[in-house]
């Protein structure tokens, strides 16, 4: 998931890491870091699992729409719910893959100021990165918090898509996944912030 093949890069500016992984430390340091890296791996697995689910949903979305085309042009009747379901699925897909996209540093940003700064004053640039990631964690965290409100009202009011009498689906399961995706994304920002902060404090090298 952290694959950064620049040949098919996205909308964002790309950057390569300035240095490799954290430098080797003392024995105690190593034990502590292996404990930490265990957690880091586990967290990475969570982020990747959500993204994989989102990825599968893109394929599902494609098949759903193709099935609708076939049904409409072949049998003269559209499948129920497709457009409303497709719209809600899309929101879900974006939120599920949000964490992995942050992790791969694929959000659009300008490197004009930051890239040269990282070369000259790596620790200052890391401090700046920590602030950016913190703002990200706060904003996406607030969005997740607001989504929790949306989820509970959708649950209480039995919100649904579709038309009564012709087919309906409750919206709360979708909201639940949206909430899950946003929460993971917020935590991923927080993790990045801590990592940058450590680099800024000189505990590890600036890797971005």
């Amino acid at each position: 998931m952290t694959d950064k093949d620049p040949r098919t890069s996205g909308a964002g500016t790309r950057h390569r890491p300035v240095a490799a992984d954290a430098r080797p430390g003392s024995r105690a340091n190593t034990r502590a870091s292996s404990w930490a890296s265990g957690w880091a791996r586990a967290w990475g697995a969570v982020v990747n699992a959500l993204a994989a689910f989102g990825t599968a949903l893109i394929a599902g979305l494609m098949l759903l729409i193709c099935a609708d085309i076939v049904a409409r042009n072949g049998m003269g009747a559209s499948l129920p719910l497709v457009s409303e379901l497709g719209a809600l699925l899309l929101v879900m897909i974006v939120c599920l893959q949000f964490g992995a996209t942050i992790r791969a540093d694929r959000l659009a940003r300008a490197g004009l100021f930051l890239d040269p700064l990282r070369q000259r004053r790596p620790r200052i640039s890391a401090a700046l990165e920590a602030v950016f990631s913190l703002v990200g964690a706060v904003m996406i965290g607030l969005m997740a918090w607001a989504t929790f409100g949306v989820l509970t009202t959708d649950w209480e009011r039995r919100e649904f898509i579709g038309t009564p009498g012709l087919g309906t689906l409750p919206t709360w399961p979708f909201r639940l996944f949206i909430l899950l995706g946003l929460t993971v994304a917020a935590v991923e920002f927080a993790v990045r912030s801590v990592r940058s902060l450590r680099s800024a404090a000189g505990f590890s090298e600036v890797t971005r």
Binding site: R72, A77, S78, V82, T163, G165, L166
Partner: peptide, 18 residues
């Protein structure tokens, strides 16, 4: 589309979304 599909029930016509 939508709720209007109900108005065609029993008529023998098929409702198409759009």
């Amino acid at each position: 589309p939508g709720v209007l599909g109900n108005w065609l029930r029993g008529t023998g016509a098929n409702a198409v979304d759009g």
